[in-house]
Design a protein around this nucleic acid. Structure first.
Lengths: 128, 128
DNA sequence: CCCTCAAGTCAATATAGTTGACATGAGGCG
DNA sequence: CGCCTCATGTCAACTATATTGACTTGAGGG
């Protein structure tokens, strides 16, 4: 399973490295892509890291204008994160490298096999 | 997939932490369990880390007498590693925690589903 | 005696996280 | 207005796990 994880992320990591980013940046982009306007606090909870650990990669992404942050309009005190067009592009390309690997593997086992794979992963991921 | 990996290793990691060990120690024990009398150089290659990185956890395991090392008898200049009884016990208990999680997940999808899961993992692990 | 190979060790550095303490900016409220 | 709280931001010290480079040790071989 360890090697499976490595095999899936290998090409995406190479792509990210060329952009001067790493896995932690991708995790942030990935979460924000799937939950636009997420607050920083929620992001911290989802990623399961401290705000200090989030700070550096997040600022880098903001500085590169891959993400924007703005106070919630007329509402809360939290800042909402959103991908810029450039951010979307990078997130997609990195995730696509991973999806490509998965798609090829799923093609070999068919739809039922793919569904079984998902079911197994969900079951063990629940094991918290 | 990340959460799947975490779910699988979570309980094993808790057990290992109680023994004052970590994932890296388990990796060493795991490899030696499956390849008794392995040389240190081969272990380094399999784990894919530098000898300096291996040094610390390996010495800890030797110091705790979970592993033994001895010069190859009348043969080479390499040292061969082997688990002690205590080492086997710890390795088994840690691996059993992981296998338990997998077995439960496999039970839900049946033999064909389990085979499909394995096939997918092997395909993506090959992606080097 | 010298060379080589496998292993062991020392030091400096990188990466990715941690905890603790404190600062800032906005809203709610008496 | 002044004070409290919440969400965020930042500084510093520390830990764990890895890296590369340089050097040592111990066992054979020619």
């Amino acid at each position: 399973m360890y090697y499976g994880w490595r095999g899936m992320t290998l090409e995406a990591d190479e792509y990210l490295a060329k952009q001067g980013l790493s896995r932690s940046h991708h995790r942030i982009l990935y979460v924000v892509a799937r939950q636009p306007d997420i607050a920083i606090g929620s992001l911290i909870e989802i990623l399961g890291i401290s705000k200090q650990a989030l700070n550096r990669p997040l600022n880098l992404l903001l500085g590169r204008k891959l993400l924007t942050s703005q106070r919630s309009p007329e509402q809360h005190r939290s800042k909402l994160l959103r991908l810029t067009e450039a951010g979307k592009r990078i997130e997609q390309r990195a995730s696509d490298q991973e999806r490509k690997v998965m798609r090829e593997a799923f093609d070999r086992v068919g739809a039922r096999g793919a569904a079984a794979w998902m079911a197994v992963m969900e079951t063990i991921a629940d094991n918290n």
